[in-house]
Design a protein around this nucleic acid. Structure first.
Length: 230
DNA sequence: GGCCAGGACACCA
DNA sequence: TGGTGTCATGGC
């Protein structure tokens, strides 16, 4: 049995940083987001919804071939044409609609200017992005952190699963409460939030369904872990 | 053939 | 408000 330590840590800056250092030691630096420029980050954030990154890369490659990593061109391109190009990423009809919705908003509100959009305060911009159809909290935070370098913590399924198992979260915790936990205890630094989320994804997607209990787990024996937790 | 992947939305009780 | 169904391809 006990590969886990007996004392469960209370959430704190120290414990969250300790986990970060372990994950960074195992996976970092991840150098996220893998994209050429902010707009490609935005497209990637939409395309990666419930999809493996390898499939997103194929869709991005198709868009690049047609020189479509361009909000103005995308705004003038029929949704069905975009859908055809992004097919490998799955949910292509929905995602084409989401891309069209975003570029329409981007053009109307910011005249396709990344700089103008980036100039907006974090909280205001986050609220605005979530109001855009097809952009939920995770996609909005990914855009804010990785495209606009705003200090917001990206929470994903891996984060919830891993930190529930570690005892920091319970089943009632949702996206917002989880994000608040990280942002309460960690300094609002873009490089830290960038690598932390990237390392969590690297950990979660590479190891046994994000169970920090397995033989080759970098967290094993170093921190409390409840293997029976959800 | 089934399951899962770097979610979000619509619908219903 | 919470649970469930839907969207869809590609790799293992």
């Amino acid at each position: 049995m006990p590969y886990q330590k007996l004392t469960k840590p209370a959430p704190s800056r120290k414990s969250l940083l300790r986990i970060y250092r372990i994950l960074y030691g195992a996976y970092g630096p991840c150098k996220w987001w893998p994209a050429d420029g902010p707009f490609e980050v935005i497209l990637g954030a939409i395309l990666t919804q419930n999809t493996t990154w390898s499939n997103v890369e194929k869709a991005i490659a198709n868009l690049k071939k047609k020189k479509m990593i361009d909000p103005v061109k995308l705004s003038k391109t029929p949704q069905t044409k975009i859908a055809e190009l992004i097919k490998p990423a799955g949910y292509f009809r929905q995602k084409a609609k989401k891309i069209k919705t975003f570029v329409n908003y981007f053009g109307e509100q910011y005249d396709f200017s990344i700089d103008e959009m980036k100039a907006k305060p974090l909280a205001k911009l986050r609220e605005e992005l979530i109001d855009v159809w097809g952009i939920g909290p995770e996609t909005a935070d990914s855009i804010l952190l990785y495209a606009f370098e705003k200090p917001t913590f990206v929470v994903d399924n891996y984060t919830m699963r891993i930190f529930r198992r570690l005892g920091y979260l319970n089943k009632k915790d949702d996206y917002d409460s989880t994000q608040k936990m990280f942002m309460k205890y960690l300094a609002a630094e873009v490089p830290l939030f960038n690598e932390y989320h990237a390392c969590i994804v690297a950990f979660g997607s590479n190891l046994c369904g994000a169970k920090p209990t397995c033989e080759d787990c970098p967290l094993k024996g170093k921190i409390y872990c409840n293997p029976d937790a959800a």
